[in-house]
Design a protein around this nucleic acid. Structure first.
Length: 206
DNA sequence: TGGGCGATTGGCT
DNA sequence: GCCAATCGCCCAC
């Protein structure tokens, strides 16, 4: 099946254009081991952010303290804090100086259900349904920004992807909202709900 | 140096 | 469907 990758093939997987990497990450498993135990999530929804060419990317306006990790080597986790209360995480793609990344938007908990539930409110289906929920279920925060996903407490393992991959516009973006760079496993209940960006109120409706 | 706004979520109408 | 929570980032002044 096209796009499928074997476990351990992470480096080969990430060494491709981000628009190819993103759908290929569907089915991959992100696993986090802490003192509390282990939670692992099989990815069912991701979004591609194409560095300097993409007005929707954090890296569009160049290197800053926040997006530093995006400019580093691939295979690391880029974590950012948003809305004053949530964390979201990305897999860094592309070589140094090419700040592409794949936002991990949703997944299905495949290991550590009890621990994930203790970190989150809500039912099984909602445990990792949405980028901030996924981070919460896995216990990911800013302390994990820049973490190497090949070894250590956080690992990403390529896996078999879904039979059908759907594509559509990314969620919540005002800029470049038309680019269909969101990828998800068709008919998977753990995929998050699409919400277009809230339109900015007109300053002076004249 | 100030202020608008965000790759969101959950609670309430 | 609507909206508050909540604060760091970043651009404009």
């Amino acid at each position: 099946m096209p796009g499928s990758a074997e476990a351990g093939g992470l480096d080969a997987l990430l060494d491709r254009p981000v628009l190819e990497v993103a759908p290929a990450l569907l089915g991959a498993v992100l696993r986090h081991e802490t003192l509390d135990g282990v939670v692992a999530v099989r990815l069912t929804e991701v979004e591609a952010y194409d560095g300097p060419h993409d007005p929707g990317s954090h890296a569009y306006r160049g290197r800053t303290a926040r997006n530093e990790v995006m400019f580093g080597p691939p295979g690391r986790l880029y974590v950012y804090f948003t809305y004053g209360m949530h964390f979201c995480c990305n897999v860094v793609v592309g070589g140094p100086g090419d700040p592409a990344a794949v936002l991990l938007r949703a997944g299905e908990v495949v290991e550590g259900h009890d621990l994930a539930r203790s970190r989150r409110r809500g039912g099984e289906r909602d445990l990792a349904r949405g980028p901030a929920r996924l981070c919460q279920a896995l216990g990911i925060d800013l302390a994990h920004n820049g973490a190497d996903l090949r070894s250590g407490p956080l690992t990403l393992t390529a896996g078999e992807g879904p039979r059908v991959v759907s594509t559509g516009p990314r969620v919540g973006l005002r800029r470049a909202a038309d680019r269909p760079w969101r990828f998800w496993a068709a008919d998977d209940p753990s995929v998050s709900v699409y919400r277009p960006a809230a339109p900015r109120p007109r300053r002076r409706p004249s």
